[in-house]
Design a protein around this nucleic acid. Structure first.
Lengths: 248, 248
DNA sequence: GGCGCTCCTTGATCGACATCAAATACAAGG
DNA sequence: CCTTGTATTTGATGTCGATCAAGGAGCGCC
């Protein structure tokens, strides 16, 4: 089960700008110190559910560390991932109690949680948080729409290339690397999770990854460690005209 | 070309709550009267582009009347619709100049536009607008995620049923009809637009609509006028467990 | 009426991806 | 070392929707 940590320790949120931009943004305004009084930490093991669709959610949170997924499940078991939460992403919706989809940790996850009601009060009285949240939500909406193009119109190969490009880009931005040298990163997802992300089966994912490897677009160490020798070439394979491509 | 109307006339926005909830929400606060001073109307003919991807957008707007679509286009012509704008929906993103996708009118459209910069100033100084926008954006995000499930995991038949259910529901809510009697509504989309919405070809759309007709789930007058005798049965066909299903 | 146009329908064929099935890799634990 | 279990790869076959192609319906216009 998950660990609760009532947090006086500001430690984990100390390195704010990248790791925890959502709410520890007292970089931006002082009122946010109030958040400190209603926050607590929770840890989740890989594979563990954070909330199930339909559950009541009495908190909102930001991801401090780890990777979690949002996904819809149909009665017959078909599943579609609709969001990928990486460190600094926000979880939950102010003003709504019931979770609309499953949230599952895919790696050890640490959340910084805020009880929903006090958070909403704060939201009402503190415009900067509101602005922040609006901005983040708009980014997520853009990402979702990019994703819709991937789901609706791209081939299996392009889908895989797109996903790898998205993760590579995001990883590079987290560690402040340039995109011109060879990129090495760990896929935070199983083949099955990738399939759920892309609207494919896990066999197709595996085959297409093998194909990209065969064609020299990527190299692989141990099925999760990816090396991209030439990011531009991968992007071309993804069929992207512009260099958009966010996630979350 | 489009018509500009510098608007002292508050007429069109008068019937606010449903038709124009985005910005004429002086129902909510008085400051919004300021909006009156920076707004103007624009009309577009069916098929006309409102903005192209990459264009500079010096305004944000809310849809007063008509239907417009947002869509991504790949260089080779593949197209994916990523948003459907109906009356009361909002267009544009404060804080961003370049449009990320094409916006096209599919029926005669009237926009209520606000010059972007003064609108952004207003946004900064007027929390209620911010809250409103956040809420609307969150709704859109939910809709986008519902849509992702449709694109990634549903069969052609389920996709069509889902789309019809979404439009039927939205239409019913606009005219305050219940969902239990037979529903009659006009599809605001060509078969091609439906295909772009659902990640299908127009031939498949046509075939599946014929199949739903054959199976008695819908009736059709003249290819655009749809009758749904039993909404629940259609929903079942769409594979939806819950009764979520928004758009925009 | 007849022409041109766009939108829609229907048929025949093909191919990308799903499905079914089996084998391999690798880690944890006895 | 062997066992067990999960994640992954690979192969054989099937199917849904795409593609290619033709024809019909509605409508404005000469």
């Amino acid at each position: 089960m998950s660990t609760f940590t009532l947090a006086e320790d500001r430690m984990k949120c100390g390195n704010c700008p990248i790791r925890h931009r959502a709410v520890c943004a007292r970089c931006e305004t002082d009122e946010l110190a109030v958040l400190e009084r209603i926050k607590y930490y929770r840890d989740f093991a890989p594979g563990q559910a954070i909330v199930w669709a339909g559950d009541e959610m009495d908190f909102v949170a930001s991801v401090v560390d780890g990777v979690a997924t949002l996904s819809h499940t149909m009665e017959d078991g078909r599943r579609q991932m609709v969001g990928l939460l990486l460190p600094s992403d926000f979880l939950g919706r102010p003003g709504r109690a019931a979770a609309p989809y499953d949230v599952v940790a895919t790696s050890p996850v640490t959340l910084c949680c805020f009880r929903r009601e006090p958070f909403e009060d704060l939201l009402a009285s503190t415009p900067p948080i509101n602005r922040r949240l609006l901005e983040m939500t708009l980014d997520e909406l853009d990402a979702a729409r990019e994703w819709m193009l991937i789901l609706g119109r791209k081939t299996a190969r392009e889908k895989i290339a797109s996903l790898l490009a998205i993760v590579a880009r995001r990883d590079a931005s987290l560690r402040l690397t340039k995109l011109d040298g060879p990129l090495v990163f760990a896929l935070p997802l199983t083949r099955e999770a990738m399939a759920d992300y892309l609207g494919l089966t896990l066999e197709t994912v595996s085959r297409q990854i093998s194909a990209l490897k065969r064609d020299g677009l990527i190299r692989i160490q141990g099925s999760r460690q990816i090396t991209v020798p030439d990011f531009q070439r991968l992007m071309a394979e993804a069929g992207d005209d512009n260099d958009g491509g966010l996630i979350s």
